[in-house]
Design a protein around this nucleic acid. Structure first.
Length: 265
DNA sequence: ATGGTACCCTGAGAGC
DNA sequence: TGCTCTCAGGGTACCA
C-alpha cells in the first residue's frame, strides 16, 4: 500500500496519539516481521516520550526523549489503527501494540514486509542516510534529479524506484509522475541529462510532475478509486485531454509499469 | 559498479 | 464450492 503519500497520511493520523505521549507498554504479538524483534525492543521504548514523529521517504521515525528513535516501515501491507481505549481484542495480523499515555496504537501487517527497529542515532542510521532527497523538500530539484540520473543506463522508471535517486516514490507514483510529464517509462535514465550534466527540459518536467502527483495524493482520501491516471488502468482510455491512447502494462525490473504509449514518449 | 532476478509473506481475485 | 494460479503500492540478497 504505502508510498510517500500514504505514509505521510499515516504520520498525520498518528501524531495526536504519539507526539508528546509516553510508551506505557509495548507488546509484540509474534517473534518478528521480516526479521525477529530484538529482545530489548519494548524496554527501549517503555517509559520514553515521543518528541516528534517524522517521515523520511517511506519510513516513520519517532524521536524519543531517550535520544533513541523508533523507525517504522509499512512494507507492502502495513497499517496503523488508533484506539482511544485500551484494546480488548485483536485482529489477525495485529503484530505490535503501543499502549501510549492516552491512546493505543496497533500495527497490523498481513504480509510482514514491514519493519520496526529502535536505533541509537537516526541521523547516523545507514538505511536512512543512504536515501536520496525528499521530493517535497527544497533540496529536491531538476538539478539534483539530473545529477542522480546521470550515467544511469537503466530505464527512467526503474531509476525512480531507486530510493537513492528520490526518496519515497514507489511503483504507483513513479508511473503517475512519468505519465504527468509525458515521458516513456522505458527511456534510459541518463538521456534526461544533458552532456554538461544540466537537466534537460524533460527532467525539469519530471521533477515538477513528481512533486505534483505526490502533493495531490497526500490530499486525497485513501479510498478514492479515481485518483490514478495510469496505475491499474490497463486497456482503459488515457485520461489526458485529447489523447486517444489506451493504457498499456509492461513489466520492468519485475514490477508492472502502466503507461500510455501515445502521449508518453 | 550496475542492473536484473528471486525471494520474503499473505490475501484477493480470476479462471476452471 | 473449491481448487489453482497470478498478482499485489516494499526492500534486499545474490547473480552476471
Amino acid at each position: 500500500m504505502p508510498e510517500l503519500p500514504e505514509v505521510e497520511r499515516a504520520r498525520l493520523a498518528l501524531r495526536p496519539a504519539m507526539e508528546g505521549s509516553r510508551f506505557v507498554r509495548v507488546m509484540t504479538r509474534r517473534a518478528g516481521l521480516r526479521s525477529a524483534f530484538p529482545t530489548d525492543f519494548a524496554v527501549r521504548l517503555e517509559g520514553h516520550t515521543v518528541r516528534t514523529l517524522e517521515r523520511r521517504a517511506k519510513s516513520l521515525i519517532a524521536h524519543l526523549s531517550s535520544g533513541e528513535a523508533l523507525v517504522m516501515h509499512l512494507g507492502m501491507s502495513g497499517s496503523f489503527r488508533i484506539s482511544r481505549q485500551p484494546v480488548a481484542s485483536f485482529q489477525a495480523h495485529d503484530h505490535v501494540v503501543f499502549e501510549m499515555s492516552g491512546a493505543t496504537v496497533v500495527f497490523n501487517d498481513p504480509r510482514r514486509f514491514g519493519s520496526m527497529r529502535v536505533v541509537a542515532d537516526a541521523a547516523a542510521d545507514p538505511a536512512l542516510t543512504a536515501l536520496g532527497p525528499e521530493p517535497l523538500a527544497a533540496a529536491f530539484s531538476a538539478r539534483t534529479l539530473a545529477a542522480a540520473l546521470a550515467g544511469r543506463r537503466t530505464s527512467i522508471k526503474a531509476a525512480l524506484l531507486d530510493q537513492r535517486v528520490v526518496a519515497g516514490l514507489g511503483n504507483i507514483y513513479a508511473a503517475e509522475a512519468l505519465h504527468r510529464s509525458r515521458q516513456s517509462p522505458r527511456r534510459r535514465a541518463s538521456t534526461l541529462v544533458s552532456r554538461s550534466g544540466a537537466p534537460k527540459p524533460e527532467a525539469v518536467r519530471l521533477a515538477k510532475a513528481i512533486r505534483a502527483v505526490l502533493t495531490m495524493a497526500i490530499g486525497l482520501a485513501a479510498d478514492d478509486d479515481d485518483r490514478f491516471q495510469v496505475y491499474g488502468r490497463e486497456g482503459l482510455r488515457c485520461r489526458r485531454r485529447g489523447c486517444t491512447g489506451r493504457i498499456r502494462r509492461v513489466v520492468q525490473a519485475g514490477r508492472s509499469t502502466f503507461y500510455c504509449p501515445v502521449c508518453q514518449r
